[in-house]
Amino acid sequence: MTKIQAGTWVEIEEVILKPEQRAPSLPEDTRKVPYLLRVSGFLVEDAELCAVVRIRTIIGRELQGILKTVNPGYSHSFGTVVPELLTIGTEAEE
């Protein structure tokens, strides 16, 4: 496995609450899974993916967690067009 260099922008994961520690008021399917935290920051020391590492966030907090992603980003889709919505305006004009 390749080493990821210290100073690289990465994302770590940490278990905040195990399923048995979650609030009793939550829906059942939510209570079954752990509450996970993901935080991005600069890697403090060289490490491999999936190792326990320390990061320094943009405001200088040092946190520890499992190294999950290198150079994490955000992506999403707006899906396809909803055909039923297309004729709403033209129907009113008829």
């Binding site: 200088g60 955000y74 992506s75 889709s77 707006f78």
Partner: peptide
Amino acid sequence: LKAIIIQEVYDSRWVCQPEIVE
């Protein structure tokens, strides 16, 4: 000021809503 924002972005299958992930 510094800021720490705790945000629920993803569900347990890492699915997100566009406006939330934005």
